[in-house]
Design a protein around this nucleic acid. Structure first.
Lengths: 116, 116
DNA sequence: TAAAATTGTTAGTTGTGACTAACAATAAGA
DNA sequence: TCTTATTGTTAGTCACAACTAACAATTTTA
């Protein structure tokens, strides 16, 4: 089943957060809770609690009321994720002629699910 | 985000169950809890509780200790799902040369996530 | 600098979806 | 038929991931 991932794998949701944080870090140097909230279209408390989970797993650093940063571990993970999304997105756009808006979102969704 | 679907949409997990029930119904005429359990690789109590949710939504009929059947509504839904999985699977196999084992599983996963 | 706006956290709730352990019903075989 | 095996359910737990309401910290601005 989808819902229950293996112990070693991170949940799709986790990956979404990591990806968002990585993207924001790239664009504006630092990621903040409200930005993550906006990008992922969830309320801030959801972000806070997700960050706690990610902290517990050593995937982000996040001081109270402070910036959010990826750790060495999660940077690689997030880069990989983003890379795969782009590849998929490009593939869908070019090979299938689907418009880019739709494509990018779907490609990301797919990536979090596919076994590559 | 993935995790929270719109009210009108069914969760990926729901679709997995519907699909499994539809497939089993096709093959062996009736679907049983232990078969669903095996197909989806979850324990039987998980199936029972999923069936309760599906019953509440009017998507399956299931008497205690009895057979599991789709309703008119869910039959269409499941057929659609299966159809899309097959299309995707075929596409991946033929267009990308990925082996069928991998492909079929992924195609299904993708289908539950993609916006077609 | 003090008040107001923004940003973030905590606490508590909900629903999903998995699990184990223990019990109940049904089916199969001696 | 009675016992055993199979199948299914209930009860209770856990983790994830969302939410609102209320509070706290930080930043902006008057």
């Amino acid at each position: 089943m989808v819902e229950q991932n293996l112990a070693t794998k991170y949940s799709p949701s986790m990956e979404y957060y990591l990806e968002a944080i990585a993207n924001l870090s790239g664009e504006r140097k630092v990621a903040r809770v409200n930005q993550i909230s906006q990008v992922l279209q969830v309320k801030m408390p959801s972000v806070t609690s997700a960050l706690r989970r990610l902290c517990d797993k050593g995937l982000v650093q996040h001081g109270k009321y402070g910036y959010v940063e990826l750790t060495l571990n999660s940077k690689d993970l997030a880069k990989e994720t983003i890379r795969r999304c782009k590849i998929l997105s490009r593939f869908f756009t070019q090979a299938l002629g689907i418009d880019q808006e739709t494509t990018e979102e779907d490609a990301c969704k797919i990536d979090h699910v596919i076994s590559m």
